[in-house]
Design a binder for these strands. Structure first.
Lengths: 331, 331
DNA sequence: CGGCTTTACTAAATCGGTTTACTAAATCGT
DNA sequence: ACGATTTAGTAAACCGATTTAGTAAAGCCG
């Protein structure tokens, strides 16, 4: 017993496809289909368990009710949580989520974007690692509904949902300086990304504001292809350089460092303070003590969905830039 | 400049749609399209940046190259990590992932399954909270490609990728008993799920094997709608009941309990040992000490994808049941 | 040079829906 | 009782691809 199509239903019942389609779409009354016929069709639909083929619908309507969610890594808690919230918010509006992880690779990102667009997603919510590429440029020119979050390219006009980077980073570090920190190191993944650059700017600013020497040897970059090994090497460097505070530019690198500290330098976990852009639940009790900058995950998700929906509905291009305030968690 | 379709290309070039389609699908030689015409078409394709509409393709071919990934919560690290691996494995085979979180709700799960099937996903990888429902039964009867993981219903024949539950749980608890544990409590979310029942069976078995009294007051169930509050209450109960070991049936509840312990009973974290089914990185250094049963996430993902692909390719129904061995991490 | 094969290509059907334009029959108003 | 309107429905085009069945022209053979 294979799947029935509208055509089958129509044939079985001796009516036309049109009639069936009207009834299915609740246009029966409007289109003057008699109550009797409507009932016959509806009853039969139920009986055979008819389910419409959304692909056919999509082809005709030109809309798939699917949104693409593109991030560097969907298993990173930050992106996973935002993804989950976006999923919920979109679910209420009848949308589904197609996901893709770019691994911070430009080529993969562009391939994914193209595939998603070819699959006719109605919009894209994306934490892009390479905004100024041709693919996104061309989509933007075609007015394709997109919302960028987490990462920005200041030379590229678009809808951005961002979080303030520089100041919060500066203020978080200030807290440690107020408590006596003298030698402050920083660990970051490759900062090709503008947001990360701003976070690092915040770090530099905090130092200069306090007339602390900015030693560029204390600014260590971790290779994101071998995070654990590379972070281990760089963390070792910082500890041997005698830092009392280490600053991190995202949760992934902080989590890795906490693990490394506990595995390799358990005797030092009480002497060092971490400052992390991004928060994780474990920071509430993990050692070293972590001062973190918690991004407003719920707002990011909500705003992304709202703006995207607006753009999809209006069919007009818009360039909204929303900068949300993160929350400092001192502990 | 709107998107060009095959028809537009054909018109622009004064050839037929058929010819263009053949060339696009590399059937030019086979179908006797002259090299010259092929080149003309390919050049023009490149020039205008033609991208095929996958929806139209899907409608015609009856396949979408999309797989549905359905889990209780995509932001749970266990499901997020498996999801990520599945995404990568499927990516190589040209598939994409449509995701859905069921929140352990039967209705939402069934709605999601139906929507995914209507969207013509080619298959489903699912950690179902309600396997024996009509929707899955009916899909199974229709031979729809599905792979179940993490959760099982012994009365329902299907493709399962599972992890041994009872014995590993028993053995993990045995370790604590060997070290002198006397009063062992358990915290679990509502175990409507067979796998969780088996884990609890392992707990009971460990106790009876060692002639320890099984006190059913020490088996506490947490309401999964209010995990934090409920876990707090139940954990308090166990601590006041003087347990020296607490067993957890999944990572989510363990993580919550670790947080609660550190927040509310920091003085006790050294006296109590946790046993957790599922592993998390933080267990490597968090307090209380955690003995965990690490599921082989990579294997689960790989097997799920392999079996699913096999089922999709073969078009025949299969009922494979693979039970993987988890790894005990003692610490 | 007439018939057969090969080359190079195309018209039209199809997938499963939606929608526009149309018609036949029934009902209404006067 | 006759034209106008309403009721109840249908045929066919369309969305953008794939694929089958076919054709016209050129090439080949004896």
């Amino acid at each position: 017993m294979k799947k029935k199509s509208i055509k089958d239903i129509a044939q079985d019942l001796g009516v036309s496809k049109t009639t069936v389609s009207f009834v299915l779409n609740k246009k029966g009354d409007e289109k003057n289909i008699s109550k009797k016929t409507q009932k016959v069709i509806l009853d039969y639909i139920k009986e055979v368990g008819y389910q419409p083929n959304q692909i056919a619908k999509s082809l005709k309507n030109g809309t798939t009710n699917t949104i693409g969610y593109l991030v560097p890594d969907i298993s990173n808690p930050f992106y996973a949580k935002i993804g989950r919230m976006i999923e919920d918010l979109l679910w209420e509006k009848g949308y589904h989520l197609l996901i893709g992880s770019t691994d911070e690779k430009k080529e993969k990102e562009e391939l994914l974007i193209n595939m998603f667009v070819n699959r006719q997603v109605d919009g894209l919510i994306i934490a892009s690692c390479f905004i100024k590429g041709d693919v996104l440029k061309s989509l933007s020119r075609q007015n394709f509904p997109m919302v960028f979050f987490d990462r920005e390219d200041p030379d590229f006009l678009a809808n951005y949902i961002l979080v303030e980077n520089k100041n919060p980073m500066k203020e978080a570090i200030q807290k440690t300086i107020d408590k006596g920190a003298k030698r402050i190191g920083l660990l970051s993944i490759t900062p090709d990304v503008y947001s990360l650059k701003l976070r690092i700017d915040g770090y530099k600013q905090a130092l200069t504001d306090n007339a602390l020497e900015y030693d560029e040897n204390l600014l260590r970059i971790v290779d994101h292809n071998h995070i654990k090994e590379s972070a281990q090497k760089e963390l070792k460097y910082l500890i041997e350089a005698g830092v009392d505070v280490v600053v991190f530019t995202n949760n992934q690198i902080t989590a890795t460092a906490i693990w490394l500290m506990n595995m390799h330098y358990p005797e030092k976990v009480k002497e060092i303070t971490f400052v992390s852009f991004d928060n994780l639940d474990i920071f509430d009790y993990s050692m070293p003590r972590v001062i973190s900058i918690a991004q407003p995950i719920m707002s990011i998700a909500r705003q992304s969905v709202d703006i995207l929906e607006e753009v999809i509905k209006s069919k007009e291009s818009k360039n909204t830039r929303i900068e949300l305030k993160p929350k400092l968690i001192e502990r």
